[in-house]
Write a protein that binds this DNA or RNA. Structure first.
Lengths: 330, 330
DNA sequence: CTGTTAGCGCGTTCAC
DNA sequence: GTGAACGCGCTAACAG
């Protein structure tokens, strides 16, 4: 490994000068600078990022801690983050907490120990470790889910409104017994989407029946199981609102497996974009989120906070959009 | 930030002893160790990973450089990597090269500068930077695609065989003019899957028609465009083999949009698992890869190489499996 | 078993 | 505009 001293010697200057050339901060005599650059080229010098980070006690890395790498929602969001980060001179490393507070904790610790420049995180609910980041003074932006009692920048969507829209649509479509499969109680998104569902029912003068509500895990299997369980009800529901993409897919799988016709016997509407939703037969009615924008916005906020750490925390809410397709029209 | 010296002072020992306790390497008197641990607790000491890395000139991080974070194939693979890494005491950071050699280059540079402990990479074809890693002596495992002229550990699937299987199945199903949409020429997977397609045709005594072959980008749009182009042929193909998951979806979208009935007018078989392939109507025939295992194997190989850097490079090939569904049965 | 010493490679004072 | 010197926080030698 060639160090800054090797370059300095080879160019006949001091290490300080090489450092200046590398970082382009203070001005260096053009002739010298050229000599240094040439020496760097000949020796194939690569600055040691670790040493630099130690010295500056700062890295140029952002950690993005998401809760399910298998969910296209998060991966799409990451693209938005990446594009902004790139331009701002940061690299993005992705960490998958898998909805597990313990795993999340490990990544938070790593981010802290590795002196990451910033963190974008979708907290894994109650046991989340975001506060540790905040207390340590690390720039943080929370995405997708509201953290409890921590003042941080957040980027969310209008979950309640979106859920209300979807449920309202099912009501208008003429469904009578509309069920809801929402996510884990500990997650704000699950609670908000459930609330939107309830609000839509009440707005239509309907009764909210707790026996038609299920709390699942935001995954395919959970959606499947919840749907299966709902179908055992008597009378059974004639429509279902699923609170995220994977659970919607799970619910549909269950209905297909049981030979229940969509949308004639059971109507379906889901929250969240579903890749190739239009290829599934029937095509699926969804509440779409501006996923890429979500990531972009979070990244923008993070960049701002890094340059201006004392700025008061801000909350951005982006809007969802209902896409009516075949699964909810009978 | 509390340092190891703060802890040492507080516990009345030397920094070296604290270091020993933290790393549990050489043995320390239990009483002392306890005192140190207590001091660490009271001061909320977190070891500075950056300083440690500088000293050891090694991190505990693996970089996984994939070429499309939007492709479920790669994200599923990453789960396999993660599970192994976790157990071996490494953290995984994910980098998305987006099939762009320049972006890949940036991440490779970062991995080098940051002294990553190892790298798992799916090279972005011709302009790949894997050799830089190898030359620098960084443990590397190449996944999914064959690198050219570099001796590294690799984990692949039997692309040619799988493609042959799928194409052979289309032939047996009675299709006459079978087209192929494969990936970029520069990628070994694209070439191998194309070869499998050709081999199946020849094995059945059919002629390989170049006008029925398209090179696309391994993405949805590419598959769509290629299919659209193929449909303009006269006579048009009556079946298509698409060389990866996203392109299969794209091709199907195109067929649906143009009102071409699957599998009656055009049969479809695709390489690679497709999430909810069984929900799409008609359900899609696919050649499934052991995605998780692929990641797991790569991680295992990487761990081995790290502990035993001089071991000769090995190549592992995993097997694919044909899943016949409705899209190819007429 | 424990403490002392000496860097890892770099950026940043501070003189000149 | 440039160089010498110091130290970021830690761990690997070496003595003791």
């Amino acid at each position: 490994m060639t160090t800054i001293y090797d370059v300095a010697r080879h160019a006949g200057v001091s290490a300080a000068t090489v450092s200046r050339v590398v970082n382009g901060r203070s001005s260096v005599d053009p002739a010298l600078a050229e000599r240094v650059r040439q020496a760097m080229g000949e020796l194939k010098y690569r600055p040691n990022a670790v040493a630099r980070n130690l010295r500056r006690s700062q890295t140029t890395l952002w950690a993005v801690i998401i809760s399910d790498i298998g969910n296209p929602f998060f991966t799409a969001m990451v693209r938005g983050v990446e594009d902004v980060a790139q331009k701002a001179g940061f690299s993005v490393v992705l960490c998958n907490s898998d909805e597990d507070p313990a795993k999340e904790g490990k990544y938070v610790t790593a981010a802290l120990n590795d002196q990451m420049a910033g963190v974008i995180i979708s907290p894994s609910g109650r046991g989340t470790h975001v506060n540790r980041l905040v207390e340590a003074g690390v720039p943080v932006v929370v995405i997708d889910r509201l953290p409890r009692g921590v003042a941080v920048d957040t980027v969310m969507v209008d979950n309640e409104h979106g859920a209300q829209l979807a449920t309202g649509h099912l009501i208008e479509a003429g469904y009578e017994r509309i069920a809801c499969v929402t996510g884990p109680r500990r997650l704000s998104t699950a609670a908000q989407r459930l609330r939107g569902y309830q609000r839509a029912l009440r707005a239509a003068g309907r009764k909210v029946r707790t026996e038609l509500i299920r709390f699942a895990d935001f995954r395919e299997e959970g959606g499947y199981a919840a749907m299966a369980d709902l179908l055992r009800q008597d009378p059974r529901p004639d429509a279902v609102f699923a609170a995220n993409n994977l659970m919607t897919v799970g619910a549909v799988e269950c209905l297909v497996d049981q030979g229940v016709r969509i949308p004639q016997e059971v109507g379906v509407a889901g929250f969240d974009n579903i890749p190739w939703a239009h290829l599934v037969r029937p095509t699926l009615t969804t509440v779409d989120q501006p996923t890429y924008e979500l990531g972009r916005t979070a990244a923008l906020l993070l960049a701002e906070r890094i340059t201006e750490p004392t700025r008061p925390a801000s909350s951005v809410t982006l809007h969802t959009q209902l896409h009516v397709r075949e699964s909810s029209r009978r």
